[in-house]
Nucleic acid binder design. Sequence first.
DNA 1: CTAGGGTTAG
Length: 573
Amino acid sequence: MASLESLIQKCNSLSHVKQLQAHFITTSQLLFCSSRTKLLELCAVSPFGDLSYATHLFRHIQNPSTNDWNAVVRGLAAGPEPTRAISWYRTMSRQSCRVDALTCSFALKACARALARSEAMQIHSQVVRLGFYADVLLMTTLLDAYAKSGDLDGAKKVFDEMVVRDIASWNALIAGLAQGSRPSEAIELFNGMRVEGWKPDEITVLGALSACSQLGALKEGEKVHSYIMGEKLDMNVQVCNAVIDMYAKCGFANKAYTVFKNMCCRSLVTWNTMIMAFAMHGDGYKALELFEQMGQAGVHPDAVSYLGALCACNHAGLVNDGVRLFDSMAGSGLTPNVKHYGSVVDLLGRAGRLKEAYDIVSSMPMKSDEVLWQTLLGACKTYGNVEMAEIASRKLVEMGSKSCGDFVLLSNVYAAHERWKDVDRVRTAMKDRDVKKIPGFSYIEVDGVIHKFVNGDQNHFNWREIYAKLDEIKFRTKAYGYVAETNYVLHDIGQEEKENALCYHSEKLAVAFGLISTAEGTPIQVIKNLRICGDCHVVIKIISKIYNREIVVRDRARFHRFTEGLCSCKDYW
DNA sequence: CTAGGGTTAG
């Protein structure tokens, strides 16, 4: 029977497996347990595998071994419905067959993929009961499951309590913190591990770079980059891609491009990242040029490349180029997804071509989502189209939107037409639903230290001086002819209070702090988690003029470079 | 060799 093992190994399609299976049945040959498991594994986890066939095979096994169970749990965990792996795991725990560390590992992998936090906790307690707490690989998987399912404190706790740690344990926590919107802690941990004598690898730096990108932490990012060069980790394409992204998101498209040019082998993601980088900076033509070049270099643009190019057209106001690109997708064998539709709706909407934008949304082959209608609503606000704004709002309410911004936009459309009764109606509706307001915050890096501000923040050690600076700004911008656009403010408060509500937006606080804590004439860079507010955009333009400073604001969507009273977005955003 | 950590996106 020596050939049996080799026969199984030679299987490279499901039909081979089925043939073997049929052969065993017809010849009434008894399969050795190990061979049977191999066959099962092949069905469950190999690229040509078939999960339903694997479970079918499994059900014909009289006394499945732990390994048989593991094969199925593993396959299900990696498949399209990871929660099924968790139910199989539960069934298995109830049977006499023993759960081993691998079973737990596969089940936890499923929790990570299914974002199943409480299930991860249940498996955690089993892991402890079974005495697997010293297994580094398993504990790292557990840590990762907590992090991915959104319980970063749980992940940290597992990390702290680990008896043994290795590089992957550090990596899992660093990446978890970076992806879970706690980038400062990710960087702290990255620096901490180096102090403890650990040597970050490719995966560690990917996490650290992602954290720097989010924070716009240029100094930290540069430190990571020089570490990468020192350790020759730049042989890894993914690492280089992350470096490009980091420089781009820290405001230095040119540095990103230098890294791009020096790379010997670029992947599809490399091109996409660079196209997106130019798009974010409003360099529409450079992005489109790159999009052309990648095709010439033999790299076929994928859906993300198209999205980047569309986004570039969007931010550069290249309306017709964008529409043409969108229409050309099908010819390249690509089906536009909801994000492509979102981008082109934005493109048309900003250009005032509301009817076309609306027609696209209503004739989409897939379900429209909230973002799409929000985009259209934003365009309606810009062009004062009440009828369409009402349609979009109704859709958003139907979809259960509780976003404050949606109500504010509609109310602004009414306010612009002095339809105060309608304004009141919207405000009442807002109070009736418990509307969510995502807190806005801004970062600024000064001397390598990141300072974070929220709206109306008085927690900064220097807040009195910052507020004094803002009073000065208020005075000087008014003298310059600025009038607060209080339409953006929704609260039922007096005019002066409304002005104050605008005055202490997080981006203004960060800019004011930048003005007082950096040398005259040096550029100031701020990062905001949401889109920059209209009033802040106006005020920062004036600040750039009267204080003679270049001010760069990265918002959720793009970079705004303010110089001499103008913005690089040409007020088209 | 039945395990863990990973880059781009309206």
